[in-house]
Simulated scan of single mutants.
Amino acid sequence: MSDFIVHILIIAATYGIASASLNLQIGVAGLMNFGQIAFFGIGGYAVAMTASAGLPPVAGIPLGVVLAAGAGAAIGRLGRNLKAEYWAIATLGIAEIFRIVLINEGWATGGAGGIGGDLSLLPGIKEPEATWAMLGIALAGLVLAFALVRGLTERQFGRILRLMREQPDLAVSFGHDIVAYKVKAMAVAGAIAAFGGALATSYIAYISPGDLVSFGTFMLWTMAIIGGMGNNRGAVLGAFVVQFIFVGALFLKDGLGLPSELAGALRMLIVGVLLLAFLMIRPEGLLPERLRKIHAED
């Protein structure tokens, strides 16, 4: 049982990194990104393809971070003139295009079958020590990502993003280049999500286009909403809550005596019902965004 708990904690930590990155976009900046799972996949595929090329998997982490940051900046620039609803549709389409490219470019990505193998960041460590070591890495990565996001959102950068979210015309009147801030927010959040994807892929030792379907972004949105939009701690808490519920649904399946082929549908149903319940009963999430009083000298 302890190994199972450790497994859940590792996955929750990696998704907590991605949830924090999405919260920076939607919770702080108000950018309706429905394609965040693509950045998560960029990090994962960077690790997998680096290992396939004969290089240490750890070398794929900075590569994935840089590529995701570039992709985020490009998407932010392309969507500079789009309204929120069109922006959301565009990001969803871009993520799906990315997934289709992965399927068709099998010579590099493994196609629909994906890439697996020895992707461990600690090749010299055997089980069970390797799992515990990976837990330490995942939690350390989560702390690092949280500190980065918190540092950005508590400074002038975050204040301008919130102003851009609430009153974009006012932000422009103050002389802020909101397009530049959209680009920066997308780039930073994309890089953080790729970092989480790299850690998750290294631990699972496998990634495929099937891991990057739109349900992945739906899960990240659920984590951010349940935790509390605009609250960094809430985004992390939401990731752990949703992940434990998502895995716990498997035990509920056994308790109800349902066939295994219904397990996936049951898990999606439970997460969907939980999301709807929060949206109707407690839309501010478990940890609502706190209003802060900022002194002029800050």
Rank of each mutant, 00 (worst) to 15 (best):
K182A: 05
A133Y: 08
A133K: 01
G113S: 09
F218Y: 11
I204E: 07
F218Q: 01
D118E: 15
A140C: 09
A112G: 09
V213Q: 14
T153N: 05
S208P: 00
L119V: 10
A189R: 01
V143H: 08
F157W: 01
R233V: 03
V188K: 08
G111K: 07
V236P: 07
A194P: 02
D118A: 15
W132K: 04
L163R: 00
I204K: 13
I192W: 13
V143K: 07
V242Q: 11
G210K: 07
L144D: 03
I125P: 02
Y203H: 04
A185V: 02
F157E: 02
D118W: 13
G216D: 09
A180N: 03
L220G: 11
A145I: 05
L199D: 03
H176K: 12
K184G: 07
A171P: 02
A145Y: 11
A145L: 10
L152T: 00
T131Y: 13
M223Q: 14
D177V: 02
T153K: 00
L163S: 12
L135N: 04
A205L: 09
L102N: 06
L135D: 08
V183Y: 12
M164I: 06
G230F: 15
P209F: 14
W107R: 00
L161S: 01
L220H: 12
G111P: 05
Q156F: 09
S202N: 11
L152E: 00
F146R: 02
